[in-house]
């Protein structure tokens, strides 16, 4: 863990300091309207619990997601990005998620090349009936990124967030 923190070098490297314990990553999740966003709604109606640091942006289809949006999230201080869409074969628009799958697997290699840990950018297929999967993915994503610590790559140093 200290290696991951050392890499980014933005947080004190003192193992389990109370500050680090309290630190929560910022995660932006791009969800398609028909499956994953609806899966998120189901997680809500089923009163499931997942970390509040995950914030969802609603898209018509996962294929609308331009890699630019993902880079922008990292620039603005996101520690992790999730893209969620319908399961392959179930796309509301027939084939959008096949295109995004290809597009993003290429983009993922670019991210890795630029030094971002692969865990920071994840893609998941979550259907409208998988509220538990939605909450589970948010949970595990948060834990994985928490273990990695804050992201420094691609970060715009002029960008100041408010608490």
């Amino acid at each position: 863990m200290s290696t991951a923190l050392g890499k980014t070098g933005e947080v004190p490297v003192n193992g389990a300091s109370p500050e680090k314990e309290r630190w929560t990553p910022l995660i932006v999740a791009f969800c398609c309207n028909w499956c994953s966003y609806a899966g998120g709604d189901l997680a809500g109606t089923s009163r499931m619990d997942y970390p509040a640091n995950v914030k969802v942006i609603r898209m018509p289809c996962s294929s609308r997601i331009n890699p630019l949006f993902i880079l922008r999230a990292f620039q603005r201080g996101a520690d992790g990005v999730l893209v969620a869409g319908c399961h392959p074969g179930d796309c509301h628009y027939t084939s959008g998620n096949y295109y995004v799958r290809r597009n993003l697997s290429l983009f993922r290699r670019l991210l890795e090349f630029s030094g971002i840990e692969p865990e920071r950018f994840q893609v998941s297929w979550i259907s409208a009936s998988e509220g538990d999967k939605f909450a589970g993915v948010m949970q595990s994503l948060t834990e994985e990124i928490k273990a990695l610590g804050p992201n420094g790559k691609w970060r715009d140093s002029r960008w100041q967030s408010v608490e």
């Binding site: 910022l26 932006v28 942006i57 609308r64 630019l68 949006f69 996101a78 408010v162």
Partner: peptide, 18 residues
């Protein structure tokens, strides 16, 4: 309704508020 500018503005706003 979902232009690049709008989506980026949304990303910015979400990240502004940690």
């Amino acid at each position: 309704g979902y232009t690049d500018e709008q989506m980026l503005a949304e990303v910015d706003a979400l990240c502004l508020q940690r």
